[in-house]
Structures are given as C-alpha cells and as structure tokens.
Design a protein around this nucleic acid. Structure first.
Length: 365
RNA sequence: GCCUUGAUAGUGUAGUGGUUAGCACGUAGCCUUGUCGAGGCUUCGACCCGGGUUCAAAUCCCGGUCAGGGCG
C-alpha cells in the first residue's frame, strides 16, 4: 500500500498504491467536494498530471446520491477521471452551524443544505457510503468541534473520534479501498499526543491530522504538527488535512507529512491571487497593468507559457471572467510542480537546501 | 449670433435651502487553508469658476467657462 523510497532527515518520498494506480508522495490534492473542480476538468488534471483529488462522501450521499452515482457507473467514470480519488468522510461539516443538529457518541444528526432534510449518520453508515462510492481512499468519520479553543469539547472530540475510528475500521468492508483515520485535539499538546497515540494503536492504511487550517496561524499549525507526528506510525502515509500554502506544505514535509489537500490555491485563484516563487501576488493591482511577464518566471503551465500578468490584469479590469480559469490552472500547476521539485530534492538528498532557498525567496506577509 | 439644457470623487450618477453630500464602478489595503458563492471587509476620493440673496446655498439669482441640443 505504501512504501518509502527515499528519506532526508524527517522528509521522505514514497509510493502510495491504490486501486487506480501508484501515486508518488508527498503530493497535493485539489478539492472536488461535489465532484467538480471549479473552472477546470479532468482533462486539465491529466494535462497538469494531477494524480489525486479529494471529494466528500457525505455531500455526494446527499446530492446526487448513491443510487444516481451507481447509474453513472461510479464516481471515476462519472467525472471521467481514472486516477486516485480520496473521499473525506464529512466530519469537517460538523463545524458548520447550519449543518449540524446534534452529536453524541452513537451518531451525528444534521440537516442537508440541499433540501433541509434531516439525516442521521453513524460511523458504520459512513463506511457503507464510502464503500459504495468506491473511492480509492476513505477517511474515517471524525468529530471536529465547533468551539475549537474549548479544551473540554476538544478532549471529548478526541475520545469520540477514537471510538468512531474503531467502529469505522470494524465495519469497513470494501477491501479494495484504503482507509485512513484522523486525529484531533485542537492545538493542545497533550490532546494531540493522546489522539495520535490512540490512532496509532489501531491499524490503518494512513494517518491524518485534522482540525487545522482553521485560523490557528502558522506557529500553532507547525507546533501542532510536531506534537502529532511524533506519535504517528513512520511506515504509513501521513496526511495533513486542509493545508494549504506553499510555505506550510514545505514546512510540513520537513516534519514528515506526505499528503495535502486544500482549496486555498483554487479559491484564491478566483480572488486574483497567483502563487510565485517570490510569494503571492494580487493580479488586480495596478502595478501589474504593464507587467508583460508570466505569472511566475519559472512556471511552465499553460497560462504562463501563453499569457502575461498584464493580460490577466486587463481581463480582470474589463470584467472578463476567463482569467479565473487561467489563474486556477496556474496555481494548481504551481503547487504540483512545487511538490515534484520537493520530491526530486529529497531523492537527491538536497531538500534542506531547497527548503532554505525557497523560504529565503518566498515573501509571506 | 440667438434660444435652450446641463455641469456633484478618476468614471457614471442620487440629491428642490439646514445631509457626516448617498450609490455603483474605480484607487489603495486586508481577509479566505479536510462543506470554494465566479467572494467578504476597510480605505481614499466630489458639489465648474466668480459674485449675489439668505441665519443657512450643491440646491435660488446674475455673470463667466465648458459641453450637448435647437433656430438662423
């Protein structure tokens, strides 16, 4: 399932094998919650060489529904994507007020945002859904409390998430599908350590860190990854959920993280932000009006090969929405290339220098 | 030449005697990280010029300038 191929200090490369092929780690997954990547499609993913995406089991269960997806001959066929698809369990929805109704040890009750119907989901039911979706990697149902700074509720979430992980594992029947668990604990050291230890006591195909990237800031994010990863199995893939930015990705890889997903790159692309090796730029700013250079000077993406910052700026100013696709393509290509470079640097035992050079050039506000 | 209409942020406009002069786009800045609203927030920025009436004028009057329209 997972094999480490090279290491430099704590950073490592590896190969994750799923029913749809092999993926080299560390990698980044774009988010396709509803099986749609805004503005781009599976052909774009092939062109960019994106080998994994992540969707959301609970959302797909509510709409378009399992019956429909069965008629469509499965999610891979439906979206014409023949590589690895992760499905998130839907635990993240629990932080949304208009979603959650109640939660207890047995199940979670919530209201569908699509038709306001009320649903009850148990870990067993969640596994049933993910097995039926036949994604390549399923995530255990976890409980992420809304009040992320409340120690007591986080303590409770660590406990419930552990109980649920056991139930997910026991009821997981799709043997072609890998199953990852998720640890919680907010930014509290003792809770993170406890959660990581509890999860590591169970045998999963991969181990995720959840509950981060929700405004805790870089310092707490980095510290929390340290707390957790110390007690996570070394020979299994480690997935930092919801992250994110190039600086967080490279920092986390240096700690031993293998997998990332985030809507940051695509969402920010639609808000005029493009990644460059020197930091983020805002293309709507007038300083780019006569900047006839590519978004990033070293990027080989479709957008950078064919268009300039000035053109994107111009499209923004004349309210021509096609720029959003161009910037989206750039940002996910940028991240994908970034991860490829990181993998290469680890294999060549050059990662430490690569990271140092990157941080030196990458300006963070 | 005569008549007429108009002139309010960079642009387009609201405003019939007392408004912190409103709005949209724009400028500048900030936010967004496992449900991505093709977003959200903040800032900057104006009454054409000169005189008059009035306690008080973007608002009423006179003149000028500029622009549009009509007549000759």
């Amino acid at each position: 399932m997972f094999q480490i191929t090279s290491e430099e200090k704590k950073a490592r490369t590896g190969i994750l094998k799923t029913q749809h092929g092999k993926v080299e780690t560390p990698f980044f997954m774009p988010v396709a919650t509803k099986l749609g990547l805004k503005l781009i499609n599976s052909q774009d993913l092939k062109d960019i060489k994106i080998k994994t995406i992540i969707s959301n089991a609970l959302i797909l269960y509510l709409n378009p529904g399992l019956e429909f997806l069965e008629k469509a001959k499965g999610i891979h066929k439906f979206i014409n994507y023949n590589d690895t698809i992760f499905t998130d369990s839907g635990g993240f929805q629990m932080i949304s007020d208009n979603f959650l109704i109640s939660i207890n040890k047995k199940h979670v009750r919530f209201r569908s945002p699509f038709d306001s119907s009320i649903h009850k989901i148990t870990p067993e039911k969640n596994m049933e859904i993910q097995s039926a979706l036949n994604s390549d990697v399923a995530m255990c149902l976890d409980y992420m409390p809304r009040f992320e700074n409340n120690y007591e509720s986080l303590k409770e979430s660590v406990k419930i998430t552990y109980e649920w992980a056991k139930r997910c594992k026991d009821s997981h029947e799709n043997k072609k599908q890998l199953l990852f668990c998720i640890s919680q604990g907010g930014t509290f050291k003792d809770l993170r350590e406890k959660s990581a230890k509890l999860m590591s006591s169970l045998d999963f195909d991969g181990y995720a860190i959840g509950g981060l990237g929700i405004g805790e800031g870089s310092d707490l994010l980095n510290k929390t990854v340290d707390y957790s990863i110390k007690y996570m199995p070394k020979d299994k893939p480690r997935y930092l959920m919801g992250i994110g930015t190039p600086q967080h990705i490279i920092e986390s890889i240096s700690k031993g993280i293998d997998i990332f997903d985030s809507c940051y790159a695509t969402k920010h692309a639609r808000h005029e932000m493009a990644f460059t090796l020197k930091g983020e730029i805002r293309l709507g700013k007038s300083k780019y009006k006569e900047d006839f250079t590519p978004l990033d000077e070293n990027c080989n993406c479709f957008t950078c090969k064919n268009y300039t910052r000035a053109y994107i700026h111009y499209l923004i100013k004349i309210n021509e929405p096609s720029w959003k696709r161009l910037v989206t393509i750039h940002n996910i290509t940028f991240l994908n290339n970034f991860l490829t470079q990181i993998r290469t640097s680890i294999k060549e035992n050059n990662f430490t220098k690569f990271k140092k050079d990157f941080i030196k050039n990458y300006k963070v506000k």
